[in-house]
Simulated scan of single mutants.
Amino acid sequence: MPDPASHIVDLRDLRLDTAHALVAQASGSEAALRRDQPSRHLQGLIDGLCELSLKDHLTGLANRRHFRAVLEREIDRVTRSGEAALLLILDIDHFKQINDTYGHLAGDVVLQSVSRTLSACVRPMDTLARYGGEEFAVVLPACQAGFGKVVAERIRRAVANTPVRISPSVEVNVTLSIGGAFAMQWIRSTTLLWTDRADHQLYNAKSMGRNCVSIEEQPDSTVSAEEKSLLFGPLYTPSGWGDLPSLDPAGSVY
């Protein structure tokens, strides 16, 4: 019989200094990483590293990995509930010109400023991410078709009306092009198809001259009550017939 004590790991045998430094720097505090409490210290490092793995290091927003997981969950919710959900992809116009003219550090300042403005425009239930380079994305649950363009226009105006100071004497005006697509209701689509549709609308917005919004009309994927019954219940199980659980989202619309 193995000795349980032989499975106990002495934290002094682990190389945790780098992990400790990363988590402490990200949190801005050493308080949650007390070395005099080994189990709490290790758990704090694990939790902190997990959180860091889901964030973009420059903006603090969700990264692409996290956003993909959110899209998967949202597709599942929309498939089951039939509620609306909107995906927006946002691109900073002429960002390369900012980098070429003022340098990459100025570009980083612009990205951080736009991130703060976008964060102020979304609800707690929305998920905002840095999608890559100068692109951002946001998924908005419970956003009805009639509100989609209104929401996107509000975001576009907020960024356009917020000049970014990149040095004590220089401000730059930043604009966004925004494309959006609604999830397919009652139909299990894929994250790739959803993002491709939103990307196509972003291309349309760029083609229309930039600093504008292009939102795809919400697809007509409604089903009848009879079709809904066939899709979502009743469900036969070894213990008898029962209903599939429904996922009714809680949250306000715009």
Rank of each mutant, 00 (worst) to 15 (best):
H20A: 02
V122Y: 04
T18P: 00
Y254H: 08
P249H: 01
I187R: 15
E30C: 01
P141F: 14
D199S: 09
A24T: 09
G179E: 03
G146S: 09
L118Q: 02
Y254T: 04
A158Y: 11
V138C: 11
S53H: 10
Y203E: 03
C143E: 10
S53N: 13
S224W: 06
L111R: 02
E153R: 10
R68A: 14
F95C: 10
E171W: 00
H41M: 11
I178H: 11
V109T: 14
L58S: 10
Y236S: 07
I155Q: 05
S214N: 10
P141Y: 15
L111W: 02
T79N: 11
Y236K: 11
R130K: 10
E135T: 11
A250R: 06
S246A: 14
W186S: 11
Y131T: 08
V213H: 12
P219S: 05
P245Y: 02
T59V: 02
A120H: 08
M184N: 13
E51N: 10
S119V: 01
L202V: 08
M184G: 07
R64W: 07
V139R: 06
D13W: 13
E134M: 08
D10E: 01
R197C: 03
Y131L: 08
A5E: 10
S115F: 01
A85Q: 13
H94T: 08
R197F: 03
E227K: 07
L11C: 04
E30N: 09
Q185Y: 00
V109W: 04
A145L: 04
L71G: 07
D3H: 04
G107C: 06
D243T: 05
P219M: 07
G107K: 00
G48N: 06
A181Y: 07
C121T: 09
D248Q: 13
S239L: 13
L111G: 01
F67P: 12
I89D: 05
A158V: 11
V213I: 12
R157H: 13
V174P: 00
D10H: 03
N63C: 10
I98H: 11
L111I: 02
V170D: 11
M1E: 09
A19P: 01
S115K: 00
